[in-house]
Simulated assay, not measured.
Amino acid sequence: MTPPLTGKTALVTGGSRGIGRAVARRLAADGARVVFTYRSSKDAADALAGEIGAVAVPCDQADPNTLPAVFEPLQDGLDILVNNAAITLSRPIADLTPEDFDRVLTINTKFPLLAIRAAIPLLPDGGRIINLSTLNTAVPAPGLALYCASKAALEQITAVAARELGPRAITVNTVSPGATDTDMLQATNTPESLARTAALTALQRLGQPTDIAAVVAFLAGPDAAWLTGQNLRATGGLLI
C-alpha cells in the first residue's frame, strides 16, 4: 500500500525535539519529503535528518530575516506547512516587559504568519497548512498571558487563512495539544502537578508527542480534505 503522503513535501518548524520531532518522523513515515527547522539542537537535528532522510535548516524565529533560508530548499514546491516552533514564558503580567512581548509574539505569531505568506505561492491547490496552538487558549493559567495571547492570535490567523485560501482547496487548521510529555512541559511543571493533570484527563495519562503527530498527519492527509478552519483540541479529554 502506498503511504498517503508519497510525493508530498512538508515543512515542519521546530522539528528537532518534542512534538515537532514526532511530527517530522510521522510525516516522513507517511511518505513525505520533510524539511524541518531547528534553533540550537544541531546534533539532534542532524541525527533526525539522517534517520528520516530529511533536510534540517537552522532558524531563529526571533529574527524574521532567517525566513528566506528556511524556504530555500522548497523552491521546487511545498505541499504541507506545519507551524510548530514556539516558546513559552511563565511570568506575571506585573513583571512583563515590552521586550518579553516582542520576543514571544514574534516567535509564536509573527514568524508563523510570515511563513504562511511565504508558503502561499508555493502550495498547490489542495495544499495543507497546520498551526500548533495550545489548550491554554481555552484554559488560561496565571503567568501565561503572552503565551496564551500569541497562540490565540495564531488561531485567528488560521481561521482567516482558511477563508482566504478555501477557493484553492488549501485547508488551514489548528491543532491544540493538551498536556503533552515534552521537555518544555517537564521544565515548567512539577512532577506532582503533572500527575494531577494526568488524573484529570479522561484517558488518564499525559499525551505523547506521537499522539499529536498522528492528528497532524491526519490533517495533512487526503482524508482531511473537508476540514478547514477548525481547531482540533488534542487533549486526551483534559478538556471536554
Rank of each mutant, 00 (worst) to 15 (best):
L146H: 03
L67T: 10
L227M: 13
V70F: 00
P73W: 02
Q75G: 12
N108I: 01
N84C: 07
A45F: 00
L122I: 04
D79T: 09
L27F: 07
L132T: 04
S193A: 13
T106L: 08
Q61F: 13
G221F: 03
T137C: 13
R21K: 15
D76R: 00
R117E: 13
A179W: 13
N136K: 11
L11T: 02
I120V: 15
T182G: 09
G143T: 08
L165I: 07
L206E: 02
N231H: 02
R39M: 11
A161R: 00
G31R: 05
A32D: 08
R39D: 07
T180W: 03
T88L: 12
P4C: 12
Q61K: 11
T190L: 07
G236T: 01
T134A: 11
A54W: 01
I120H: 05
A169E: 14
V55C: 09
T210V: 14
C59P: 03
T171H: 08
P191H: 05
K151S: 02
W226V: 12
D76Q: 13
G18C: 02
L123F: 08
G7C: 07
A47D: 14
A29W: 01
G178N: 11
P58Q: 05
G178E: 04
T66I: 09
A28N: 04
Y147M: 04
L67D: 04
D46W: 04
Q186F: 04
I116V: 15
I116L: 12
A152V: 01
V215P: 05
L165C: 07
A56M: 10
G50W: 07
E99W: 01
V175F: 09
L5G: 01
I87P: 02
F101S: 02
L200R: 15
A28F: 07
L67N: 13
V216H: 06
A115C: 15
A85P: 01
D181K: 10
A62Q: 05
P73A: 04
E155N: 15
I170W: 00
I87E: 08
Y38C: 06
L165D: 03
L144A: 08
V104T: 02
D211S: 09
V172G: 10
D76H: 10
N108V: 08
P3Q: 12
E51M: 08
E155C: 11
R205G: 03
